[in-house]
Design a protein around this nucleic acid. Sequence first.
DNA 1: AAATTGGGACAGTCATGTTGACTTATCTGC
DNA 2: GCAGATAAGTCAACATGACTGTCCCAATTT
Lengths: 176, 176
Amino acid sequence: MTVPISATAAQAHVSPLKVTPASPLFLREDEIRRGIELLYFGYTSMIRGADAILEAQGLGRAHHRSLYFIARRPGLSVGELISLLGVTKQSLGRVLNDLGHRELVEQRVGVADRRQRLLTLTASGAALEARLFTELERSMARAYGEAGQQAVSGFWAVLMGLVPPADRPQVEALQG
Amino acid sequence: MTVPISATAAQAHVSPLKVTPASPLFLREDEIRRGIELLYFGYTSMIRGADAILEAQGLGRAHHRSLYFIARRPGLSVGELISLLGVTKQSLGRVLNDLGHRELVEQRVGVADRRQRLLTLTASGAALEARLFTELERSMARAYGEAGQQAVSGFWAVLMGLVPPADRPQVEALQG
DNA sequence: AAATTGGGACAGTCATGTTGACTTATCTGC
DNA sequence: GCAGATAAGTCAACATGACTGTCCCAATTT
């Protein structure tokens, strides 16, 4: 039951990608497994492009995640970043030290609360993040274009559904 | 522009989850970033449930991935599994040794090619994989239910679009 | 008979994460 | 104003999962 994928659809950024549609009884094991597998392969495929750049810099994915969220929310505190990434202070500490020594990330004392260290990218940090983002964007833009606008809405809805309701406000807060 | 998510929709498995729909100009940076972030948080959220079970067994995610694909394609060869996971022979070797010593995975000599080692789960391996799958399924089924059938089709289409065309046949081959 | 392929094994390294305990500075509530 | 909570940094030790490189064996292919 293999569904052939039109290879030429990659260039034509208008025609929706044809894949097996979800059946009315869409909670069967195979359909769950299809979601699990596509999520795994889609995620690793998207990430792959940035890995080459990171490796050339001697950085890893952990550094990328920090750069990404600092770019997304300039001036966020160390604690907020820990909460977003779901790692311990010690793990993040080493990553932030690396990024600080390379002058990719700067820390400022918080204005409202002077215990906080607010994180921002330096110019070179922003440049690196932009290069990494371009890699992810290329992959994501192609997928959006192939799948079509309606599919993108569904993509977002299912992914948000995977996030436990308690964690959703934090994810939504990244937007706008 | 934070969109409040109905918390009660989690119980009612019929009403589609309301999220910001993709705009006509859906290639703007914010919409790309939204996809990146939801993919990250959705993936890690789905995985999280299985981690507790794995930890109790003294196993890690690498073991889970092998168990998953052996359950999905019983009798696949070591080389096929290496190709699916995108890891080196050495990395997989240790994982398969662990799983073998715990009698969760069995190897049989290939019939067509006797150099191959074909992998299958033992009874206890299948039982463990089933428990792990149940965790992922709970998360995925809830997301499917909240988002609705149409959204699931879009979810699949975008994810398949993320996979480089050259890799897609391998992903499709897991189905049916 | 020679070359290739599938798989296993050993040694060493690196990146990323963990726990626990301790310090410093700062804020908040009484 | 002081006690306790909080934000952050730090040290040490450790586990996991990946890597590279090399060597080997058995089976298949040419």
